[in-house]
């Protein structure tokens, strides 16, 4: 415990760096998943290949990906950009199938009625389809957020500043409290972001407040 109290600044610094690496991939995964999911839903064979690609992507162990990606995309291993891009890929792997499900959950009849009411395709998407898919999308984003925040720690093995550094340093110095602090901080950060997403969801989708959006 002494270690934790004396190193609050270190933990705080790593928490900030951690968040900076985690947030962009969550956002990117969400935004890119929308068009990709629409595209995937438009053709049966595309949907199958999206599902296959996702499980393939998710099976790639993260540490080797972090090391190898720079060779493919031209960033530095220690560059937070590298970690962020890798995590965006994992995020997409989770998010695209979730978004495809979300859009499929919107009844075709409702969309038909909207068209009949005179909604242009763009307006129909943003004002009818997207809000209706919202709860399922939110459930997907929440899973992506939690898993991304947890995965950022792996970069610690390579010396990319994040809470994962506490694991590597802690195991080397034999300070269990340091590792435990890293675990707790990661979980707290994930739950905090998750709670924020739930609040955000309630704010933009007030109609979901009553039944709640507790899909895992």
């Amino acid at each position: 415990m002494t270690w934790v109290l004396e190193n609050l600044d270190v933990i705080g610094g790593y928490t900030g760096a951690h968040l900076l690496q985690a947030l962009p991939p969550i956002l990117v995964a969400f935004l890119l998943s929308l068009p990709l999911a629409k595209l995937a839903n438009s053709r049966g064979w595309l949907r199958t290949s999206v599902t296959t690609t996702s499980s393939l992507m998710y099976a790639i162990p993260s540490l080797p990906l972090f090391v190898l990606l720079p060779g493919l995309i031209g960033t530095g291993v220690r560059s937070p950009l590298n970690i962020s891009i890798a995590l965006s890929l994992y995020g997409l792997a989770l998010m695209v199938p979730a978004a495809a499900d979300a859009f499929r959950s919107v009844s075709r009849d409702v969309l038909g009625s909207a068209t009949a009411q005179g909604y242009a395709p763009g307006a129909r998407f943003f004002e009818v389809e997207l809000p209706l898919a919202g709860p399922v999308l939110l459930a997907g984003v929440r899973v992506v957020a939690v898993s991304t925040i947890s995965l950022v720690t792996v970069g610690g093995v390579l010396g990319v500043p994040s809470l994962g550094m506490l694991f590597v340093d802690g195991v080397r110095r034999g300070i269990a409290a340091e590792i435990a602090a890293g675990i707790v901080a990661t979980v707290v950060l994930a739950l905090l972001i998750d709670a924020l997403l739930v609040l955000l969801g309630r704010a933009v989708m007030p109609w979901t407040r009553r039944q709640g959006v507790s899909r895992p």
Binding site: F167, G182, L191, P216
Partner: peptide
């Protein structure tokens, strides 16, 4: 649901190193 969500957030590398210690 909450427990499953929190468990998802647990970083495996941290668990492995902590348990190993």
């Amino acid at each position: 649901v909450a427990a499953a969500g929190a468990a998802r957030a647990l970083p495996t590398l941290g668990l492995v190193t902590l348990f190993a210690l």
